[in-house]
Design a protein around this nucleic acid. Structure first.
Lengths: 159, 159
DNA sequence: TGTGGACTTCAAGCGCACTCGAAGTCCAGG
DNA sequence: CCTGGACTTCGAGTGCGCTTGAAGTCCACA
């Protein structure tokens, strides 16, 4: 357990955050975290940066880009833990976002269910392909952020 | 309603699939779709390609890469609609995949709920940041190796 | 037959979130 | 004081899923 003080080297921050040092430099370049420097020019990070890094990683899990994470970060204290009052709106916004993603996935799942016995995959008729949401994305994994997914009771494989 | 025959130009396929012509050329380059050529060298797509494109787009919505979509495509008929027997396992695999995504989001959501009144975002203690699930997350190869770090008592609103 | 809009290829570029490598510098432990 | 491992910067590269542009060709309609 070598270093216990406030000024973490980039290697220490990397080890404790699970990120690569290169990623931390990148985050710093983007303004997500900040460092002071030794006289020799090496970075030293305040412990508070641990929390900021944690926040960014959490934001990514919610599906935010680093840019968006930075926006959210800007509304929280620089070097203290946020109060419940500061954190709550962020957490709630993220929850809404997650709820939307879940809702969309559930819709897709339901449509897939309707397609199981069908297989048509017609561009015109297949509910699976014809998302009434047009929120196209370009990335696999996450990014469906349509605002209002209509409930849409749907007879199997028809549009 | 100009063309009604089987041989769609790339522009027609683009219009009907909602994809850009450049994307279709890209798909063809990847082997996801195929075309014949006119004597002049222009692409003509069989109508069955509409279904293949639909399939690929659907796969993307499920979170598959184009490569994975191609793998799945290879197990379906080239130019006919898949039978229910052919389609069902694919659809079920996709549903499982969606279920996993939903489960992960729900877990994240729950953790966020626990964090609303907390705001600590401690790397050590915050459930939000410490995913006990080692979820698929396209992380940069770095693992969260925080498990073995000493507990380190951290009073609220301090770090 | 003329024409202009749709098509062709090929190479390069983009956006994101990083990673890698080279060449050089720093600094803590012995 | 020495040393070697950790750090520095900078530029380039990666992977995915495309888009854009240049330069040239085709073909359906009048």
């Amino acid at each position: 357990m070598p270093p216990q003080h406030d000024r973490l080297t980039i290697g220490e921050l990397a080890a404790r955050s699970g990120l690569a040092a290169s990623a931390l430099r990148y985050y710093e370049e983007l303004g997500l975290i900040a460092s002071s420097r030794t006289t020799g020019g090496q970075r030293r990070y305040h412990r508070a940066m641990l929390r900021r890094v944690a926040f960014v990683r959490a934001a990514q899990r919610v599906g935010l880009s680093l840019d968006e994470a930075g926006q959210a970060l800007a509304r929280l204290p620089e070097d203290r833990a946020p109060t419940a009052a500061q954190w709550a709106p962020v957490a709630r916004a993220w929850q809404r976002r997650i709820d939307e993603q879940i809702a969309e996935l559930q819709l897709l799942r339901r449509k897939l269910g309707g397609c199981v016995g069908c297989g048509c995959l017609s561009l015109k008729r297949c509910a699976l392909y014809n998302p009434d949401d047009t929120a196209a994305d370009h990335g696999p994994g996450a990014r469906w952020l349509l605002g209002d997914t209509p409930p849409e009771p749907e007879p199997p494989t028809t549009a």
